[in-house]
Design a protein around this nucleic acid. Structure first.
Lengths: 129, 129
DNA sequence: ACTCGATATGATGAATCCATCATTTCGCAA
DNA sequence: TTGCGAAATGATGGATTCATCATATCGAGT
């Protein structure tokens, strides 16, 4: 249980939560589950393109972290988000990333507009600022 | 650059972001920076109790992920959050965790109120549901 | 009991992250 | 230039996660 031991500081528990979120397919799964009420494993298989045992391994991690809950009906197992804050967390993360990527693009554009450095052997010539 | 390559799907970039957040001291650092404008490295050293080189390693990760920006003035280096969404992400994560931990406590309470299973050798006796 | 489709779990080598110590770099003052 | 405090970087063994294949388990039907 990643959150076991109530004596651990919250920042440590938070870091653990982010570990559970640190794999692309686990994000993909949570995004799929953010779209509706519940989803059958078979549907996630086709949405993600994963092999059954690979998907199951990731779902097990998400269950262990209490991010999802499962319910078996006959031979079909359904999953859903355990808390609405999971979807909210993904939304905020998306916003942050779009900011970061946008900054990156501006940084590249600024770098691209810098004057060329002449490639000569020896000292670097002084160019107009 | 963890977010390099704009061709990668956003869920993969998200997972990478969460990798950058997957260490307790890095969360602690971001929380300290969430409290104000900018903080000197020396202050973070005393707040976290980390050794200088350990803190620097973590700060380098956060810089690499563009979550913080640094500014050196003389021999003092100051850090601040690169985006307000970082603090928001930590807030949402906290809310989610409090939900999860609260659920855990209820789950334990429910388990504690279950009838005892008699410890006998052999078959497990049928107890009242 | 056997069979089957659906799903979960076990096992393991490769890849990545973490902890920690050693060393270097950055500004500044003398 | 040298020396110093502050901070960053390099290196490496240990720990953890990931990828992937093999196997087991779960319900239902016969």
């Amino acid at each position: 249980m990643p959150f076991r031991d109530a004596q651990r500081p919250l920042y440590e528990i938070k870091a653990n939560l982010f570990k559970g979120l640190s794999h692309p397919y686990r994000i993909r799964i949570l995004e799929i589950l953010s779209g509706g009420e519940e989803v059958a494993v078979a549907d996630m298989l086709s949405e993600t393109g994963l092999e059954a045992s690979h998907l199951s391994q990731h779902l097990a991690v998400l269950r262990r972290y209490r991010l999802v809950v499962s319910e078996r009906r006959a031979s079909i197992v359904y999953y859903r988000l355990a808390h609405p804050e999971v979807a909210e967390l993904l939304r905020v993360a998306r916003r942050l990333l779009l900011d970061i990527l946008s900054d990156d693009r501006e940084r590249e554009a600024a770098a691209a507009s810098l004057p060329e450095i002449a490639h000569t052997t020896g000292s670097i010539p002084v160019t107009a600022s």
